[in-house]
Amino acid sequence: MSCEVELHKVRVCYDAFCALDGIDLCVQPGEALGIVGPNGSGKSTLLKTIAGLLQPERGSLCVFGTAPRKLPRGTIAYVPQVEAVDWAFPATVSDVVAMGRFAHLPWWQRFGATDRALVEEALEAVGMASMAGRHIAELSGGQQQRAFIARALAQQPRLLLLDEPTTGVDAVTEEAMRVVVRAVVARGTPVLMTTHDLERVDEWFDRLMVLDRRTLALGTPAEVAASGAYAAIREHTHTHGHLRVDHDPHEGHEAHPEVRL
């Protein structure tokens, strides 16, 4: 069984604090993996590590059989949770989406018709074609998020990492994103996505990972739901099925013992 993304006993620390420990994972081709867990459970850290932005302190990490930093340009597309960009940057929506092509264009190659077509296609996919000429500062939060997903699509990555793309977007946008994710995995590209939202996880993902600095459960949404680990976290949440940390993150691991499926 080959893994497109393979983690073995991975530990990731920020100085003294370890956000992740003992993570094992094997992501298959064309698989959508949902990552859920309370705030501070290491979901974003996991994506950043797989993207090659953070180095594991221990354990091994392979993406397409090598270290993330050694992959050819354009292999991984990463959409962060909160885009820490300068919204006053002189760029339109299509300018931002075009950046997705830059990873594939060596300096001697022009931004050609194929690139333009891919940018348009990506904008269509997220329903932003009519906004192509707008300045990025003129977009709503959901539109900004869709523009950044379009950039990731235009990149035509072999691995797509989405950090909470559905946070703060309306139901229509959320459904558009779900269709996009399913279309990407249908082409064989694995998608790893973190989410707060526990509704309809079975429609989004092939497998779910419940994370709280270590893996609490990993399996199909039905298996995870049956395991109790997922429910144990959910009991901590009192608001609309969203996961919240209202307990000391250093306690309570005994309350939901690790379930491996």
């Binding site: 820490a84 950046m99 830059f102």
Partner: peptide, 22 residues
């Protein structure tokens, strides 16, 4: 001029540019 596109991407969004392998 040679680094134009990479420099633009890295100036706008260094984190995503780095993840993309720039």
């Amino acid at each position: 001029m040679l680094a134009y596109r990479d420099m633009l991407f890295a100036s706008f969004d260094p984190v995503v540019a780095e993840a993309a392998g720039l």
